[in-house]
């Protein structure tokens, strides 16, 4: 079976700074794939390339074995089945929960009129399905706590119901109980057959929810392990460089 999402030899420069070089990753449907690494390792950049925010300078992104050419905006990435929770959450504070959850995909009636009622109903439904309580969907996001915002951002990605879900540090601002809640959501997404990619610093979280883990270090792939075949020590070693990188696959794009 072709991986739901595959990165092959992806490189990215910001000016003269190399953020990623030759990043490889295979994520499968029905699995949770964690990306870990130190600050600045290139995790968010990887996510943003898949999301269509950045264009890779080299390499390719494949969805179900097909290369995503011309993906140059989050809208086209979404069309190809990708939903994202960004590290900065990408919420608009002055808009309410319902508007934020429908952003980029607002329901319309009569061709041009915003269908507010449907938007609010859908938002409330998703939040209820996820068993999260963030209050009235008309509450401006600016009024929410960090944890509530994170939950709204996750709920928005869930609402779009895409086969590939990317979550960049979805538990960063959360307390113990909220983290468990997001963990449940991730487990459910996997059970429903989605390919879930999470970036996390929290190795406990990774080991209890992920099937595979890919380690990035200084913009390069150190290696990928099945969670059952590895331990925390090895992963920490890969993050810090104590464990050497796996030999890179030979499909690096010819220059």
């Amino acid at each position: 079976m072709a991986p739901a999402l595959r990165l092959r030899g992806v490189s990215k420069y910001f000016g003269s700074v190399s953020a990623l070089s030759n990043v490889n990753l295979d994520a499968y449907a029905g699995e949770v794939h964690a990306i870990v690494g130190d600050n600045g390792a290139g995790k968010s950049t990887t996510i943003k390339i898949i999301a269509g925010i950045h264009r890779p300078d080299d390499g390719e992104v494949l969805v179900n074995g097909e290369e995503l050419a011309h993906v140059n905006s989050a809208a086209t990435a979404r069309k190809h089945g990708i939903a994202v929770v960004y590290q900065d959450l990408a919420l608009v504070e002055c808009l309410d929960i319902a508007h934020n959850m429908a952003l980029g995909n607002l329901p319309r009636k009569f061709g041009i009129v915003l269908d507010r009622r449907r938007m609010e109903r859908e938002a409330a439904e998703v939040l209820r399905d996820l068993k999260v309580r963030v209050g009235n969907v008309r509450t401006p996001v600016g009024l929410l706590s960090g944890g509530q915002r994170q939950v709204v951002a996750v709920a928005r990605a869930v609402r779009t119901d895409r086969p590939i879900m990317l979550l960049d540090e979805p538990t960063a601002a959360l307390g113990v109980q909220e983290t468990a809640q997001v963990g449940d959501i991730i487990d459910r997404l996997r059970a429903s057959g989605k390919a879930v990619i999470i970036v996390s610093h929290d190795l406990d979280f990774v080991f209890s929810h992920a099937d595979r883990v890919t380690v990035l270090r200084l913009g390069r792939t150190v290696g990928t392990r099945a969670v059952t075949d590895t331990g925390r020590e090895q992963v920490v070693g890969m993050i810090t460089g104590a464990v050497p990188a796996d030999p890179t696959p030979d499909h690096e794009v010819a220059s």
Binding site: A51, G52, I53, S73, A74, A75, T76, A77, R78, V84, Y86, D88, L89, A90, L91, V92, E93, C94, L95, H99, L103, G104, N105, L106, R108, I112, V113, L114
Partner: peptide, 25 residues
Amino acid sequence: ERTRFGVNVRALGGNRQAAVGNGLR
């Protein structure tokens, strides 16, 4: 107040990066 365009304009002004991230043109 009543169109997608209006909401998108608010989103753009409220948080441009979020607008980009959510696929607004």
